[in-house]
């Protein structure tokens, strides 16, 4: 066992996968020097500049070249420096990577992993803070993972690298160095598409992912201490494909569902979760399926006071728990 934070766990996952499989390589902007978050630290020294590869500053090319390389015996991990910068590559991700297998009737596959730090809370302003999971979670043929803990990050990144299809791997950058966790020394994976109950409870099911999972756990403790409400917290971990089973099983038990996400409210991925619960667990519900999210403004402004005002936090979540518990 060794204690690691999330960015170290991600670094370890890549290191171990690149050792395990010589086809695995990493490409992106500044990755050779360790990357702006140090997630690729040491990989160029270990594997050489060909396998830890500095590309020109061109996101569409990073993804497009990764797609081509994946067709010819390479297992690429493409790093997009910030999720906010992924948009020029949307054509390559949505129209190419996610459609290649389908449009060729299974003739071609595209085993690429696209890693991107995402999320608010580091004074990143409107271009180093975006949540992009709802945009890409809508796309068939693409798997979308949102990690928030060192264990899940390492296990899921390994699964993503080994997956035969494209995976968008979103790493909440505020969670990079906030938490440490003991990780097993031996090889382990966490399957894509499985949620995890991070805290058991009986009164309310709280469904969340990313940084909000940490805030939700705090809020659940507060609700327990102050109001005696027992909240079950589910970390989705994978946005697409969504683990409906774990969500529905819990809601059937508690009868109440609270969905918490950092992205702005309208059309956020929590809306999909809420719709599934409304449609498939209607008989079990004792209160309105409720969402806590950011207001519908571009998330997030640079000034701390503005950013804090917008983002969900443990207090706002605890209040929503209280309101829902009152039903």
């Amino acid at each position: 066992m060794a204690e690691k934070n999330m960015v170290e766990a991600i670094n370890d996952a890549m290191l171990e996968e690149m050792k395990r499989d010589p086809r695995v390589m990493l490409l992106g902007e500044d990755v050779g020097g360790g990357g702006v978050f140090r997630a690729t630290q040491g990989l160029r020294d270990e594997f050489g500049p060909d396998r830890c590869f500095d590309t020109p500053l061109a996101e569409s090319a990073i993804i497009g070249v990764a797609i081509g390389a994946s067709l010819n015996g390479i297992v690429p991990i493409a790093e997009i420096q910030f999720a906010d910068f992924i948009h020029p590559a949307m054509d390559q991700i949505v129209s190419e990577a996610a459609r290649l297998r389908y449009r060729s009737n299974g003739g071609w596959g595209c085993p690429i992993t696209v890693r991107a730090p995402y999320g608010s809370g580091i004074h990143g302003g409107p271009y180093h803070s975006q949540s992009i999971e709802a945009i890409y979670g809508h796309v068939p043929g693409l798997k979308v993972v949102c990690v928030a803990t060192p264990y899940d990050a390492k296990g899921l990144l390994k699964s993503a690298i080994r997956d035969p299809d494209p995976v968008l791997f979103l790493e909440h950058k505020r969670a990079y160095r906030l938490y440490r966790q003991d990780l097993p020394d031996d090889d382990f994976t966490v399957p894509i598409g499985e949620a995890e109950v991070k805290r058991e409870g009986s009164d309310i099911t709280l469904i969340t992912y990313g940084m909000m999972m940490h805030h939700s756990l705090k809020a659940a403790e507060t609700a327990q201490d102050e109001d005696g409400a027992s909240v079950e917290v589910i970390d989705l971990r994978t946005i697409s494909p969504l683990d409906k089973k774990t969500v529905l099983k819990s809601v059937e038990k508690t009868g109440k569902a609270l969905v918490v996400y950092e992205d702005n409210l309208t059309g956020g991925f929590g809306a999909e979760v809420a719709a599934i619960i409304a449609q498939e667990a209607f008989e079990f519900l004792d209160g309105p399926v409720t969402r806590v999210a950011s207001p519908d403004v571009p998330i997030s402004p640079y000034a701390g006071v503005l950013e804090e005002y917008l983002l969900p936090n443990p207090e706002k979540i605890a209040k929503a728990i209280r309101d829902l518990a009152a039903y």
Binding site: P126, Y127, P301, Y302, A303
Partner: peptide
């Protein structure tokens, strides 16, 4: 300083934007 009267963005954009 991302101040209220910052003409560039009222504290929304990063400095030097």
């Amino acid at each position: 300083f991302a101040r209220k009267e910052d003409i560039s963005s009222g504290g929304r954009n990063m400095p030097s934007h």
